[in-house]
Design a protein around this nucleic acid. Structure first.
Lengths: 337, 337
DNA sequence: CGCTTTTGTTTAATCGTTTAACTAAACTTG
DNA sequence: CAAGTTTAGTTAAACGATTAAACAAAAGCG
């Protein structure tokens, strides 16, 4: 069954298409008689306006692209949920693109999205430079960067205060008297990876602890590299007595290794992790975590986006959300402070 | 900066729009001279075809709607990832709609998607009847139901073999000698909830165990109800000695309660859960789980969708994916068999 | 050399809306 | 009551692509 068009509705109601359009969008004043006619015509034809045609004419798609590395990562899933909610409330839809952290796929997806004439893009880029976003930006499409901070562009950025989160975590470990505090960090090509590492370093500095090079391992924010790096750390001469892990996925990998080897937490190794997924309090032992407000992060990103699209906001912000340290049992006795 | 149109490219290249179109889509034979001209014009104007116009003309959007209850649930997140991957490989995009299990929002979203003229819909409905999908189906848009089985419609359905999964889990508990095997099931208005309950019952029957009404609790597939129902079970006279929990979220809630009360698994309560999220082997104790092939489920759903869209497949399938029982430590000693 | 066929390109209609510009009727108003 | 204003609705041109049909030039052919 073909869908009815506005024209057909107009014919049936015995009016012009313009009038039908006006009725639908309640633009101009239309007599209630005619309105009734139109409504009933719409009813009988089961008319549903064609958004594509509308988009073409109005030059807006009411679609926002979402470019993220891994929707299966609970952090991103939660972010996506926040974004979807906020956008839906404003009658915008989300086009989901998963990049698997591949710059290649990111670029391809971006091209597709440009073609689709998205009204905005929310992105947590896999790349470090992000120069290929330029061509989108130049056409006036607002971009919100999520937990990634491109150097040069004039667009909104929303970030967890990664440095502070990492600083607090490290500080916590220092205050508990740990001497050899290691870190499994993310790719330093990403601002999240870099900032968390910086936070860790600042804390060490501030407390006069000298950094030990072999206690700093760079992973790839995924499960496998978490396992690998944990292995490296625990098999080397100079083992850490405490460890800060930079995200949830690497924690899964790391914990896996520790479990296999029967290494006890926190007796043999104290652990604090960045991200606070729902399983954090159920693993053995419950893990002390730096919680990013992921859902709120998504909502805020979407709000910034709406402000750019609807209110034509052109002054762009960089917005920090503060993470919270949730102390559980993986980081040593609740002493000192 | 306005985006260039095909017309402008044509002008610059000194040819007609039809020719440019032909070059882009390599439809008809175009002399390589002209081709060069067109390409270079496209280059200098930084031309990106407008998909919206194309959609309108060709009457296809190359967008598939995805309607799910909660993208933050790792099961759905993984499903979504599989769908996105498979669709992207076929040059289709995913429009993500989160319904929060609200039939209301589901209906609203559906309307929006119809307006957007999606080429297909993949849905894990929150409702039981799903009659409002009819209007979409009638226009010839293929629908794939995911883990939900509407009675009447002529569309593809892809299901985890919920009954078998639940049966196997229950059987496993019975064979380990448990006497009072309980279940926290999902809403029986959903086929997932119902089928898992049925599987549980069949197993009991087959082994001549009589069902005890007060050991069967119906949750809502979310964390809160998991906590509630676990509480009810463990505070009543007739406590279970083993429990089958119907999904991952309710497990989180249930485990939370057990941890609070210091109830030991499996000594005081053996547990098997449906779904095998990434944290399953890290919680204390690692949980025996019925693993649904979530990513593959998503991929298959997308494949069915592509078959319907591209190959005009009209004969529709109901496809079962078999879950696997992953035995860990939460369900008693690895004895018997 | 004329005739058909092939090749390469153009013309113009179309997809389903919105909206600026226009019109005709009804209503004010001095 | 003539002139201006308001009201309620129509006409037709966009938006940016695709594509059937038309066409001109070149090639093939006896």
């Amino acid at each position: 069954m073909k869908r009815a068009t506005l024209k057909e509705v107009a014919q049936l109601a015995g009016v012009s298409t313009a009038t039908v359009s006006n009725v639908i969008n309640s633009k101009k004043y239309v007599s209630s008689e005619v309105k009734q006619q139109v409504f009933s015509a719409m009813q009988t034809l089961n008319y549903q306006p064609n958004t594509i045609a509308k988009s073409l004419r109005k030059q807006e798609s009411r679609i926002v692209g979402l470019l993220i590395s891994d929707i299966a990562n609970p952090f991103f899933a939660s972010v996506a949920k926040g974004i979807e909610k906020e956008l839906a409330d404003n009658d915008y839809n989300v086009l989901l693109c998963n990049t698997d952290s591949s710059v290649e796929r990111e670029r391809e997806n971006l091209e597709g999205l440009i073609g689709k004439r998205i009204d905005g893009l929310i992105v947590s880029s896999a790349g470090n430079t992000g120069d290929y976003f330029r061509s989108l930006e130049e056409t006036g499409v607002p971009i919100v960067f999520l937990n990634r901070c491109p150097q040069f562009m004039n667009c909104d950025v929303i970030l967890t205060n990664n440095m502070r989160g990492a600083y607090n975590a490290t500080e916590h470990l220092i205050r508990h008297g740990y001497q050899r505090i290691g870190i499994i960090t993310g790719p330093t090509s990403l601002s999240t990876g870099k900032d968390r590492l910086t936070g860790y370093r600042r804390a060490l500095e501030d407390y006069g602890v000298t950094e030990q090079e072999d206690l700093v391992k760079e992973g790839r924010f995924d499960i496998e590299s978490g396992y690998e790096k944990m292995k490296e750390l625990m098999e080397q001469e100079n083992k850490p007595d405490a460890l800060f892990i930079s995200n949830n996925s690497m924690t899964l990998g790391g914990y896996k290794y520790l479990r296999e080897k029967g290494i006890r937490i926190p007796e043999q190794l104290a652990v604090i992790v960045f991200d606070d997924p729902e399983w954090a309090e159920l693993v053995d032992p419950p893990v002390t975590a730096v919680r990013q407000p992921s859902y709120e992060l998504g909502m805020q990103a979407a709000k910034l986006m709406m402000a750019s699209i609807k209110d034509r906001k052109t002054k762009h912000d960089i917005m920090y959300m503060d993470p919270a340290l949730i102390v559980r049992q993986s980081c040593g006795c609740p002493a000192v402070s």
